[in-house]
Design a protein around this nucleic acid. Sequence first.
DNA 1: GTGGTCTAGACCACT
DNA 2: GTGGTCTAGACCACA
Lengths: 122, 122, 122, 122
Amino acid sequence: MNTNWHDNSPIYRQLKQRIVSMMLEGLLKPGDALPSVRQIAAEFKLNPITVSRAYQELADETLVEKRRGLGMYMTDGAREKLLTSEREQFLKNEWPAVLERMRSLGLSVKELLASANAGGVA
Amino acid sequence: MNTNWHDNSPIYRQLKQRIVSMMLEGLLKPGDALPSVRQIAAEFKLNPITVSRAYQELADETLVEKRRGLGMYMTDGAREKLLTSEREQFLKNEWPAVLERMRSLGLSVKELLASANAGGVA
Amino acid sequence: MNTNWHDNSPIYRQLKQRIVSMMLEGLLKPGDALPSVRQIAAEFKLNPITVSRAYQELADETLVEKRRGLGMYMTDGAREKLLTSEREQFLKNEWPAVLERMRSLGLSVKELLASANAGGVA
Amino acid sequence: MNTNWHDNSPIYRQLKQRIVSMMLEGLLKPGDALPSVRQIAAEFKLNPITVSRAYQELADETLVEKRRGLGMYMTDGAREKLLTSEREQFLKNEWPAVLERMRSLGLSVKELLASANAGGVA
DNA sequence: GTGGTCTAGACCACT
DNA sequence: GTGGTCTAGACCACA
Protein backbone atom coordinates (compact mmCIF):
# COMPACT_ATOMS: atom_id res chain seq x y z
CA MET A 1 0.00 0.00 0.00
CA ASN A 2 1.19 3.47 -0.74
CA THR A 3 -1.70 5.71 0.16
CA ASN A 4 0.52 7.29 2.75
CA TRP A 5 1.75 10.64 3.99
CA HIS A 6 -1.19 12.69 2.92
CA ASP A 7 -0.93 15.60 5.25
CA ASN A 8 1.89 18.01 5.94
CA SER A 9 2.82 16.73 9.34
CA PRO A 10 6.20 15.04 9.59
CA ILE A 11 6.27 11.48 8.38
CA TYR A 12 7.75 10.19 11.61
CA ARG A 13 4.78 11.64 13.45
CA GLN A 14 2.27 10.11 11.08
CA LEU A 15 4.02 6.80 11.52
CA LYS A 16 3.93 7.16 15.28
CA GLN A 17 0.24 8.00 15.18
CA ARG A 18 -0.43 4.93 13.11
CA ILE A 19 1.15 2.72 15.75
CA VAL A 20 -0.72 4.50 18.50
CA SER A 21 -3.94 3.80 16.62
CA MET A 22 -3.10 0.12 16.41
CA MET A 23 -2.56 0.08 20.15
CA LEU A 24 -5.87 1.79 20.81
CA GLU A 25 -7.70 -0.52 18.42
CA GLY A 26 -6.17 -3.57 20.05
CA LEU A 27 -4.41 -4.67 16.88
CA LEU A 28 -1.26 -4.43 18.91
CA LYS A 29 -1.29 -5.90 22.40
CA PRO A 30 0.96 -5.48 25.43
CA GLY A 31 4.03 -7.67 25.03
CA ASP A 32 3.71 -7.80 21.26
CA ALA A 33 6.84 -7.09 19.25
CA LEU A 34 6.77 -4.20 16.87
CA PRO A 35 8.10 -4.67 13.34
CA SER A 36 11.79 -3.89 13.10
CA VAL A 37 12.97 -0.52 11.93
CA ARG A 38 14.36 -2.10 8.80
CA GLN A 39 11.14 -3.91 7.99
CA ILE A 40 9.10 -0.76 8.18
CA ALA A 41 11.71 1.25 6.34
CA ALA A 42 11.68 -1.27 3.51
CA GLU A 43 7.93 -1.64 3.40
CA PHE A 44 7.21 2.07 3.23
CA LYS A 45 10.37 3.11 1.42
CA LEU A 46 11.44 5.31 4.25
CA ASN A 47 14.78 6.30 5.59
CA PRO A 48 15.47 4.09 8.66
CA ILE A 49 16.27 7.24 10.60
CA THR A 50 12.71 8.42 10.07
CA VAL A 51 11.34 5.18 11.45
CA SER A 52 13.76 5.32 14.34
CA ARG A 53 12.54 8.70 15.30
CA ALA A 54 8.97 7.47 15.55
CA TYR A 55 10.02 4.57 17.74
CA GLN A 56 12.19 6.85 19.83
CA GLU A 57 9.26 9.06 20.72
CA LEU A 58 7.14 6.05 21.56
CA ALA A 59 9.91 4.83 23.82
CA ASP A 60 10.24 8.25 25.44
CA GLU A 61 6.58 8.07 26.35
CA THR A 62 7.10 4.53 27.70
CA LEU A 63 4.53 3.12 25.32
CA VAL A 64 7.17 0.85 23.96
CA GLU A 65 10.31 -0.65 25.40
CA LYS A 66 13.54 -1.66 23.78
CA ARG A 67 14.79 -5.18 24.58
CA ARG A 68 18.39 -5.16 23.57
CA GLY A 69 19.18 -7.45 20.72
CA LEU A 70 15.52 -8.34 20.31
CA GLY A 71 13.64 -5.26 19.25
CA MET A 72 10.81 -3.06 20.44
CA TYR A 73 7.84 -4.32 22.45
CA MET A 74 4.59 -2.74 23.49
CA THR A 75 4.63 -2.08 27.23
CA ASP A 76 2.02 -3.29 29.66
CA GLY A 77 0.25 -0.12 30.65
CA ALA A 78 0.49 1.41 27.19
CA ARG A 79 -3.14 1.33 26.23
CA GLU A 80 -4.38 2.77 29.51
CA LYS A 81 -1.73 5.45 29.46
CA LEU A 82 -2.74 6.37 25.95
CA LEU A 83 -6.43 6.49 26.67
CA THR A 84 -5.89 8.77 29.63
CA SER A 85 -3.51 11.21 28.05
CA GLU A 86 -5.18 11.40 24.66
CA ARG A 87 -8.59 11.82 26.18
CA GLU A 88 -7.37 14.66 28.32
CA GLN A 89 -5.70 16.25 25.33
CA PHE A 90 -8.88 15.89 23.34
CA LEU A 91 -11.25 17.25 25.94
CA LYS A 92 -9.03 20.13 26.98
CA ASN A 93 -7.83 21.34 23.61
CA GLU A 94 -9.24 19.71 20.54
CA TRP A 95 -12.93 19.55 21.37
CA PRO A 96 -13.21 23.18 22.51
CA ALA A 97 -11.38 24.23 19.34
CA VAL A 98 -13.84 22.26 17.25
CA LEU A 99 -16.78 23.88 19.00
CA GLU A 100 -15.31 27.33 18.51
CA ARG A 101 -14.72 26.63 14.84
CA MET A 102 -18.26 25.41 14.38
CA ARG A 103 -19.59 28.46 16.11
CA SER A 104 -17.73 30.78 13.73
CA LEU A 105 -19.11 28.82 10.80
CA GLY A 106 -22.63 28.91 12.14
CA LEU A 107 -22.85 25.16 12.56
CA SER A 108 -24.27 23.29 15.54
CA VAL A 109 -23.44 19.85 16.80
CA LYS A 110 -27.08 18.93 17.13
CA GLU A 111 -27.82 19.65 13.51
CA LEU A 112 -24.81 17.69 12.42
CA LEU A 113 -25.88 14.69 14.45
CA ALA A 114 -29.42 14.96 13.15
CA SER A 115 -28.32 15.15 9.54
CA ALA A 116 -25.93 12.26 10.13
CA ASN A 117 -28.77 10.12 11.49
CA ALA A 118 -30.80 11.08 8.45
CA GLY A 119 -28.01 9.80 6.25
CA GLY A 120 -26.48 13.19 5.61
CA VAL A 121 -22.95 11.97 6.10
CA ALA A 122 -21.38 9.17 4.13
CA MET B 1 -1.40 42.96 23.97
CA ASN B 2 1.07 40.21 23.31
CA THR B 3 -0.92 37.03 23.46
CA ASN B 4 0.28 36.19 19.99
CA TRP B 5 1.76 33.37 17.95
CA HIS B 6 0.83 30.45 20.12
CA ASP B 7 1.26 27.53 17.82
CA ASN B 8 4.07 26.46 15.55
CA SER B 9 2.47 27.43 12.28
CA PRO B 10 4.12 30.33 10.46
CA ILE B 11 3.23 33.76 11.71
CA TYR B 12 1.99 34.93 8.34
CA ARG B 13 -0.53 32.12 8.35
CA GLN B 14 -1.72 32.86 11.87
CA LEU B 15 -2.08 36.47 10.88
CA LYS B 16 -4.07 35.47 7.84
CA GLN B 17 -6.32 33.28 9.95
CA ARG B 18 -6.91 36.13 12.33
CA ILE B 19 -8.14 38.33 9.52
CA VAL B 20 -10.32 35.55 8.19
CA SER B 21 -11.87 35.26 11.63
CA MET B 22 -12.59 38.97 11.70
CA MET B 23 -14.34 38.63 8.37
CA LEU B 24 -16.42 35.71 9.58
CA GLU B 25 -17.33 37.51 12.80
CA GLY B 26 -18.34 40.62 10.88
CA LEU B 27 -15.71 42.79 12.56
CA LEU B 28 -14.47 43.48 9.05
CA LYS B 29 -17.04 44.33 6.42
CA PRO B 30 -16.94 44.31 2.61
CA GLY B 31 -15.36 47.49 1.35
CA ASP B 32 -13.52 48.11 4.59
CA ALA B 33 -9.85 48.94 4.37
CA LEU B 34 -7.52 46.58 6.14
CA PRO B 35 -4.81 48.05 8.35
CA SER B 36 -1.75 48.87 6.29
CA VAL B 37 1.15 46.48 6.16
CA ARG B 38 3.29 48.94 8.04
CA GLN B 39 0.68 49.49 10.74
CA ILE B 40 0.42 45.81 11.49
CA ALA B 41 4.15 45.36 11.27
CA ALA B 42 4.65 48.11 13.82
CA GLU B 43 1.86 46.98 16.12
CA PHE B 44 3.02 43.38 16.32
CA LYS B 45 6.71 44.07 15.89
CA LEU B 46 6.86 42.06 12.71
CA ASN B 47 8.82 42.43 9.55
CA PRO B 48 6.63 44.08 6.90
CA ILE B 49 7.45 41.23 4.54
CA THR B 50 5.82 38.79 6.92
CA VAL B 51 2.63 40.80 7.02
CA SER B 52 2.80 41.23 3.28
CA ARG B 53 2.79 37.54 2.80
CA ALA B 54 -0.41 37.12 4.76
CA TYR B 55 -2.08 39.81 2.67
CA GLN B 56 -0.73 38.24 -0.48
CA GLU B 57 -2.44 34.96 0.23
CA LEU B 58 -5.69 36.69 1.06
CA ALA B 59 -5.48 38.53 -2.24
CA ASP B 60 -4.75 35.30 -4.10
CA GLU B 61 -7.97 33.90 -2.70
CA THR B 62 -9.81 37.08 -3.74
CA LEU B 63 -10.90 37.74 -0.18
CA VAL B 64 -9.14 41.05 -0.35
CA GLU B 65 -8.35 43.37 -3.21
CA LYS B 66 -5.45 45.69 -3.68
CA ARG B 67 -6.19 49.27 -4.65
CA ARG B 68 -2.90 50.52 -5.89
CA GLY B 69 -1.33 53.20 -3.83
CA LEU B 70 -4.23 53.04 -1.42
CA GLY B 71 -4.14 49.76 0.38
CA MET B 72 -6.04 46.51 0.76
CA TYR B 73 -9.82 46.25 0.96
CA MET B 74 -12.17 43.43 1.84
CA THR B 75 -13.99 42.26 -1.27
CA ASP B 76 -17.73 42.02 -1.60
CA GLY B 77 -18.32 38.30 -1.69
CA ALA B 78 -15.58 37.51 0.79
CA ARG B 79 -17.71 36.41 3.71
CA GLU B 80 -19.93 34.16 1.62
CA LYS B 81 -16.94 32.69 -0.14
CA LEU B 82 -15.36 31.93 3.20
CA LEU B 83 -18.46 30.40 4.74
CA THR B 84 -18.95 28.13 1.77
CA SER B 85 -15.40 26.90 1.43
CA GLU B 86 -14.67 26.57 5.12
CA ARG B 87 -17.93 24.77 5.81
CA GLU B 88 -17.24 22.31 3.06
CA GLN B 89 -13.72 21.78 4.35
CA PHE B 90 -15.08 21.22 7.82
CA LEU B 91 -17.85 18.82 6.93
CA LYS B 92 -15.79 16.84 4.47
CA ASN B 93 -12.54 16.53 6.36
CA GLU B 94 -12.38 17.90 9.85
CA TRP B 95 -15.66 16.64 11.30
CA PRO B 96 -15.22 13.04 10.14
CA ALA B 97 -11.69 13.10 11.51
CA VAL B 98 -13.00 14.29 14.86
CA LEU B 99 -15.61 11.54 14.94
CA GLU B 100 -13.02 8.93 14.09
CA ARG B 101 -10.72 10.24 16.79
CA MET B 102 -13.51 10.15 19.34
CA ARG B 103 -14.40 6.63 18.33
CA SER B 104 -10.83 5.45 18.88
CA LEU B 105 -10.83 7.10 22.31
CA GLY B 106 -14.17 5.59 23.22
CA LEU B 107 -15.91 8.93 23.50
CA SER B 108 -19.34 9.83 22.16
CA VAL B 109 -20.67 13.19 21.08
CA LYS B 110 -23.86 12.72 23.06
CA GLU B 111 -22.02 12.18 26.31
CA LEU B 112 -19.87 15.21 25.66
CA LEU B 113 -22.88 17.38 25.07
CA ALA B 114 -24.61 16.00 28.15
CA SER B 115 -21.60 16.60 30.37
CA ALA B 116 -21.21 20.07 28.90
CA ASN B 117 -24.77 20.90 29.82
CA ALA B 118 -24.08 19.62 33.28
CA GLY B 119 -21.14 22.00 33.52
CA GLY B 120 -18.52 19.41 32.78
CA VAL B 121 -16.59 21.66 30.44
CA ALA B 122 -15.22 25.02 31.47
CA MET C 1 -18.57 53.72 -17.42
CA ASN C 2 -16.34 52.01 -14.93
CA THR C 3 -15.06 48.94 -16.68
CA ASN C 4 -11.57 50.26 -16.17
CA TRP C 5 -8.15 49.28 -14.92
CA HIS C 6 -8.39 45.58 -15.52
CA ASP C 7 -4.78 44.65 -15.79
CA ASN C 8 -1.90 45.18 -13.44
CA SER C 9 -0.08 47.83 -15.39
CA PRO C 10 -0.03 51.28 -13.85
CA ILE C 11 -3.20 53.26 -14.31
CA TYR C 12 -1.37 56.21 -15.83
CA ARG C 13 -0.03 53.91 -18.51
CA GLN C 14 -3.42 52.44 -19.27
CA LEU C 15 -4.77 55.95 -19.53
CA LYS C 16 -1.98 56.93 -21.86
CA GLN C 17 -2.60 53.90 -24.01
CA ARG C 18 -6.24 54.78 -24.23
CA ILE C 19 -5.41 58.21 -25.63
CA VAL C 20 -2.90 56.73 -28.04
CA SER C 21 -5.63 54.39 -29.29
CA MET C 22 -7.95 57.31 -29.87
CA MET C 23 -5.24 58.99 -31.92
CA LEU C 24 -4.64 55.88 -33.98
CA GLU C 25 -8.36 55.37 -34.54
CA GLY C 26 -8.78 58.98 -35.63
CA LEU C 27 -11.18 59.78 -32.79
CA LEU C 28 -8.67 62.42 -31.82
CA LYS C 29 -7.25 64.60 -34.62
CA PRO C 30 -4.19 66.83 -34.84
CA GLY C 31 -4.99 70.18 -33.30
CA ASP C 32 -7.77 68.78 -31.14
CA ALA C 33 -7.75 69.70 -27.49
CA LEU C 34 -7.54 66.88 -24.99
CA PRO C 35 -9.85 66.86 -21.99
CA SER C 36 -8.41 68.73 -19.05
CA VAL C 37 -6.65 66.87 -16.29
CA ARG C 38 -9.43 67.77 -13.93
CA GLN C 39 -12.14 66.55 -16.25
CA ILE C 40 -10.54 63.17 -16.64
CA ALA C 41 -9.71 62.94 -12.97
CA ALA C 42 -13.32 63.62 -12.09
CA GLU C 43 -14.76 61.34 -14.73
CA PHE C 44 -12.65 58.33 -13.76
CA LYS C 45 -12.30 59.15 -10.09
CA LEU C 46 -8.57 59.36 -10.36
CA ASN C 47 -5.99 61.40 -8.59
CA PRO C 48 -5.13 64.37 -10.86
CA ILE C 49 -1.46 63.50 -10.44
CA THR C 50 -2.12 60.17 -12.09
CA VAL C 51 -3.73 61.86 -15.07
CA SER C 52 -0.92 64.38 -15.21
CA ARG C 53 1.63 61.66 -15.46
CA ALA C 54 -0.07 60.16 -18.48
CA TYR C 55 -0.17 63.55 -20.18
CA GLN C 56 3.41 64.21 -19.25
CA GLU C 57 4.63 61.10 -21.00
CA LEU C 58 2.58 61.96 -24.07
CA ALA C 59 4.16 65.40 -24.07
CA ASP C 60 7.64 63.92 -23.65
CA GLU C 61 7.05 61.93 -26.79
CA THR C 62 5.79 65.08 -28.56
CA LEU C 63 2.46 63.45 -29.29
CA VAL C 64 0.79 66.24 -27.41
CA GLU C 65 1.75 69.84 -26.72
CA LYS C 66 0.95 72.08 -23.85
CA ARG C 67 -0.43 75.51 -24.75
CA ARG C 68 -0.05 77.55 -21.64
CA GLY C 69 -3.29 78.62 -20.10
CA LEU C 70 -5.25 76.65 -22.68
CA GLY C 71 -4.53 73.00 -22.16
CA MET C 72 -3.08 70.05 -24.08
CA TYR C 73 -3.42 69.60 -27.84
CA MET C 74 -2.64 66.75 -30.16
CA THR C 75 0.38 67.64 -32.29
CA ASP C 76 0.46 67.53 -36.07
CA GLY C 77 2.71 64.60 -36.79
CA ALA C 78 1.42 62.57 -33.85
CA ARG C 79 -0.42 59.89 -35.76
CA GLU C 80 2.43 59.21 -38.19
CA LYS C 81 4.96 59.21 -35.38
CA LEU C 82 2.86 56.70 -33.51
CA LEU C 83 2.31 54.43 -36.46
CA THR C 84 6.02 54.31 -37.20
CA SER C 85 7.27 53.74 -33.69
CA GLU C 86 4.55 51.34 -32.60
CA ARG C 87 4.84 49.30 -35.75
CA GLU C 88 8.56 48.98 -35.29
CA GLN C 89 8.07 48.03 -31.67
CA PHE C 90 5.50 45.46 -32.68
CA LEU C 91 7.48 43.87 -35.50
CA LYS C 92 10.75 43.82 -33.66
CA ASN C 93 9.63 42.66 -30.24
CA GLU C 94 6.02 41.72 -29.80
CA TRP C 95 5.37 39.65 -32.91
CA PRO C 96 8.46 37.47 -32.54
CA ALA C 97 7.55 36.91 -28.91
CA VAL C 98 4.07 35.84 -29.93
CA LEU C 99 5.46 33.41 -32.49
CA GLU C 100 7.85 31.96 -29.96
CA ARG C 101 5.07 31.56 -27.43
CA MET C 102 2.88 29.82 -29.99
CA ARG C 103 5.70 27.52 -30.93
CA SER C 104 6.18 26.44 -27.34
CA LEU C 105 2.45 25.78 -27.05
CA GLY C 106 2.37 23.83 -30.30
CA LEU C 107 0.07 26.29 -32.02
CA SER C 108 0.42 27.61 -35.55
CA VAL C 109 -0.77 30.88 -37.01
CA LYS C 110 -2.27 29.18 -40.01
CA GLU C 111 -4.47 26.95 -37.92
CA LEU C 112 -5.58 29.87 -35.84
CA LEU C 113 -6.55 31.83 -38.91
CA ALA C 114 -8.32 28.85 -40.39
CA SER C 115 -10.33 28.19 -37.23
CA ALA C 116 -11.11 31.89 -36.96
CA ASN C 117 -12.51 31.90 -40.49
CA ALA C 118 -14.54 28.87 -39.58
CA GLY C 119 -16.05 30.82 -36.69
CA GLY C 120 -13.76 29.36 -34.08
CA VAL C 121 -13.26 32.66 -32.28
CA ALA C 122 -16.10 34.59 -30.75
CA MET D 1 26.15 32.83 -18.33
CA ASN D 2 24.68 36.06 -17.16
CA THR D 3 22.09 37.00 -19.75
CA ASN D 4 19.51 37.15 -17.00
CA TRP D 5 16.66 39.24 -15.71
CA HIS D 6 15.97 41.31 -18.77
CA ASP D 7 12.56 42.71 -18.05
CA ASN D 8 11.10 44.50 -15.08
CA SER D 9 9.01 41.67 -13.75
CA PRO D 10 10.16 40.22 -10.44
CA ILE D 11 13.06 37.82 -10.61
CA TYR D 12 11.14 35.03 -8.93
CA ARG D 13 8.53 35.22 -11.64
CA GLN D 14 11.09 35.15 -14.43
CA LEU D 15 12.69 32.19 -12.77
CA LYS D 16 9.35 30.45 -12.54
CA GLN D 17 8.67 31.13 -16.20
CA ARG D 18 12.04 29.70 -17.13
CA ILE D 19 11.21 26.44 -15.39
CA VAL D 20 7.79 26.35 -17.03
CA SER D 21 9.50 26.71 -20.39
CA MET D 22 11.81 23.83 -19.62
CA MET D 23 8.78 21.71 -18.80
CA LEU D 24 7.05 22.66 -22.03
CA GLU D 25 10.18 22.01 -24.06
CA GLY D 26 10.64 18.63 -22.43
CA LEU D 27 14.00 19.54 -20.94
CA LEU D 28 12.44 18.69 -17.63
CA LYS D 29 10.43 15.48 -17.39
CA PRO D 30 7.84 14.23 -14.91
CA GLY D 31 9.58 12.75 -11.89
CA ASP D 32 12.75 14.73 -12.50
CA ALA D 33 14.22 16.54 -9.55
CA LEU D 34 14.56 20.27 -9.89
CA PRO D 35 17.83 21.89 -8.91
CA SER D 36 17.87 22.65 -5.22
CA VAL D 37 17.04 26.10 -3.99
CA ARG D 38 20.60 26.58 -2.86
CA GLN D 39 22.07 25.44 -6.16
CA ILE D 40 20.07 27.95 -8.13
CA ALA D 41 20.71 30.64 -5.58
CA ALA D 42 24.43 30.07 -5.88
CA GLU D 43 24.45 29.78 -9.66
CA PHE D 44 22.53 32.97 -10.28
CA LYS D 45 23.76 34.81 -7.23
CA LEU D 46 20.30 35.12 -5.81
CA ASN D 47 18.95 35.07 -2.32
CA PRO D 48 17.57 31.60 -1.55
CA ILE D 49 14.33 33.18 -0.51
CA THR D 50 13.84 34.54 -4.00
CA VAL D 51 14.32 31.13 -5.54
CA SER D 52 12.09 29.64 -2.91
CA ARG D 53 9.28 31.90 -3.91
CA ALA D 54 9.41 30.73 -7.50
CA TYR D 55 9.28 27.11 -6.37
CA GLN D 56 6.49 27.94 -3.99
CA GLU D 57 4.28 29.22 -6.78
CA LEU D 58 5.04 26.20 -8.91
CA ALA D 59 4.05 23.98 -6.01
CA ASP D 60 0.85 25.93 -5.47
CA GLU D 61 -0.08 25.20 -9.06
CA THR D 62 0.77 21.52 -8.53
CA LEU D 63 3.34 21.59 -11.30
CA VAL D 64 5.94 20.54 -8.82
CA GLU D 65 5.76 18.53 -5.63
CA LYS D 66 7.83 18.77 -2.54
CA ARG D 67 9.34 15.59 -1.16
CA ARG D 68 10.28 16.55 2.31
CA GLY D 69 13.94 16.58 3.07
CA LEU D 70 14.65 15.56 -0.51
CA GLY D 71 13.71 18.41 -2.77
CA MET D 72 11.26 19.41 -5.47
CA TYR D 73 10.10 17.12 -8.28
CA MET D 74 8.16 17.72 -11.44
CA THR D 75 4.70 16.18 -11.12
CA ASP D 76 3.19 13.73 -13.56
CA GLY D 77 0.49 15.74 -15.21
CA ALA D 78 2.48 18.96 -15.20
CA ARG D 79 3.09 19.29 -18.91
CA GLU D 80 -0.49 18.53 -19.88
CA LYS D 81 -1.78 20.90 -17.23
CA LEU D 82 0.47 23.61 -18.55
CA LEU D 83 -0.43 23.08 -22.18
CA THR D 84 -4.11 23.22 -21.41
CA SER D 85 -4.10 26.26 -19.21
CA GLU D 86 -1.59 28.27 -21.19
CA ARG D 87 -3.30 27.54 -24.47
CA GLU D 88 -6.61 28.65 -23.11
CA GLN D 89 -5.02 31.77 -21.73
CA PHE D 90 -3.42 32.46 -25.09
CA LEU D 91 -6.47 31.89 -27.23
CA LYS D 92 -8.84 33.71 -24.95
CA ASN D 93 -6.78 36.74 -24.05
CA GLU D 94 -3.43 37.14 -25.71
CA TRP D 95 -4.26 36.30 -29.31
CA PRO D 96 -7.33 38.54 -29.52
CA ALA D 97 -5.29 41.35 -27.99
CA VAL D 98 -2.61 40.84 -30.62
CA LEU D 99 -5.17 40.94 -33.40
CA GLU D 100 -6.70 44.09 -32.00
CA ARG D 101 -3.30 45.71 -31.72
CA MET D 102 -2.44 44.78 -35.29
CA ARG D 103 -5.73 46.17 -36.50
CA SER D 104 -5.08 49.50 -34.85
CA LEU D 105 -1.64 49.59 -36.46
CA GLY D 106 -3.02 48.68 -39.87
CA LEU D 107 -1.13 45.40 -40.02
CA SER D 108 -2.50 42.06 -41.18
CA VAL D 109 -1.40 38.60 -40.23
CA LYS D 110 -1.34 37.48 -43.84
CA GLU D 111 1.09 40.16 -44.86
CA LEU D 112 3.31 39.37 -41.92
CA LEU D 113 3.43 35.71 -42.82
CA ALA D 114 4.09 36.55 -46.45
CA SER D 115 6.94 38.91 -45.64
CA ALA D 116 8.32 36.36 -43.21
CA ASN D 117 8.40 33.76 -45.94
CA ALA D 118 10.15 36.29 -48.16
CA GLY D 119 12.81 36.69 -45.48
CA GLY D 120 11.36 39.84 -43.97
CA VAL D 121 11.76 38.67 -40.41
CA ALA D 122 14.95 37.34 -38.95
C1' DG E 1 1.09 57.54 2.07
C1' DT E 2 0.47 52.49 -0.18
C1' DG E 3 2.30 47.54 -1.37
C1' DG E 4 6.32 44.83 -3.82
C1' DT E 5 10.83 43.11 -4.15
C1' DC E 6 15.43 41.96 -2.96
C1' DT E 7 19.62 41.02 -0.04
C1' DA E 8 22.29 39.17 3.73
C1' DG E 9 22.34 36.35 7.25
C1' DA E 10 20.34 33.38 10.66
C1' DC E 11 17.74 29.45 12.60
C1' DC E 12 14.53 25.52 12.31
C1' DA E 13 12.48 20.93 11.05
C1' DC E 14 12.73 17.05 8.16
C1' DT E 15 15.06 13.00 5.69
C1' DG F 1 21.64 17.38 2.43
C1' DT F 2 16.53 19.43 1.64
C1' DG F 3 12.93 23.48 1.93
C1' DG F 4 10.63 27.09 5.21
C1' DT F 5 10.56 31.08 7.97
C1' DC F 6 11.94 35.33 9.98
C1' DT F 7 14.55 39.77 10.66
C1' DA F 8 16.68 44.12 9.45
C1' DG F 9 17.23 47.26 6.29
C1' DA F 10 17.06 49.08 1.69
C1' DC F 11 15.01 50.64 -2.71
C1' DC F 12 11.25 51.06 -6.12
C1' DA F 13 6.75 52.16 -8.44
C1' DC F 14 2.32 53.86 -7.74
C1' DA F 15 -1.53 57.16 -6.22
